[in-house]
Computed example of a mutant assay.
Amino acid sequence: MDRFLSNFVHNIDAKGRVSVPAAFRQVIVARGIRELFAMRSLTHPVMDVGGPDLLERFEQKMAEADPLSETYQDLSIFAYGDGTYLKSDAEGRIAMTDFIRSHTGIKDRVVFVGARDYFQLWEPDYFEAYRNEARARLLSARQGQASTARAPE
């Protein structure tokens, strides 16, 4: 197991902690990730969570940019100023901090969603709606491709 795969809904306890799914903890161990880094998604009210490679993606983009450019500044603010390390305890729980809750709308339950090299934290109702919309878009695109392939010339 070396990819974050599938999705899991977990309850947040009274102290604001939630258990990272066992399957995700196995990936974390297999990849040798010691610290989890979280950053706000640019496209949805979702948190992206991963190891050093998540942060390194942005650092690589920053290395390609002029350090005096606005793009560099934007990437720097996004990666460093709008990200945080997540603390986990011995039982594999992480805290659902105000930083996470204010961006995601998560209250008492969270969906952990695999995204190959990292995972995401979603508010359950938002995830379900997005998943249904994504499926509809993919089916529509597939049907459009099938119609084009069958059309006579």
Rank of each mutant, 00 (worst) to 15 (best):
D13H: 05
D13W: 04
D13Y: 05
A14K: 10
A14M: 08
G16H: 03
S19A: 15
P21C: 12
P21E: 10
P21H: 09
A22W: 02
A23W: 02
F24G: 02
F24I: 04
V27I: 12
I28R: 05
V29S: 13
V29D: 15
A30M: 09
A30Y: 07
R31S: 08
R31K: 15
G32I: 11
I33A: 09
R34T: 14
E35V: 14
L36V: 08
L36C: 08
F37D: 03
A38T: 02
M39I: 15
M39G: 03
M39A: 04
R40K: 15
S41N: 14
S41L: 07
H44Q: 14
P45N: 14
P45H: 07
M47T: 00
D48S: 07
D48G: 00
V49Q: 04
G50K: 05
G51H: 03
D53A: 14
D53W: 06
L54K: 03
L55G: 09
L55F: 10
E56P: 02
R57I: 11
F58I: 13
E59P: 08
A63M: 12
E64F: 11
A65D: 08
P67D: 10
L68M: 15
L68F: 15
S69F: 13
S69M: 13
Y72A: 13
Y72N: 08
Q73M: 10
L75D: 06
S76G: 09
S76W: 06
F78E: 00
A79R: 12
A79I: 03
G81L: 07
G81R: 12
G83K: 06
Y85W: 07
L86G: 03
K87G: 11
K87I: 02
S88A: 09
D89N: 12
D89L: 09
A90H: 10
E91A: 14
G92V: 03
R93L: 01
R93W: 01
R93C: 01
R93G: 01
R93T: 00
I94V: 15
A95W: 02
M96V: 11
M96C: 07
D98S: 11
D98V: 00
F99K: 05
R101Q: 10
S102G: 01
T104M: 01
G105C: 02
G105R: 00
I106M: 04
K107G: 00
R109M: 12
V110L: 09
V111G: 04
F112V: 02
F112H: 03
F112W: 04
F112R: 01
G114M: 08
G114S: 08
A115E: 10
A115M: 12
R116S: 11
D117L: 10
D117C: 03
D117K: 13
D117A: 12
Y118C: 09
Y118R: 14
Y118D: 01
Y118V: 06
Q120M: 10
Q120Y: 02
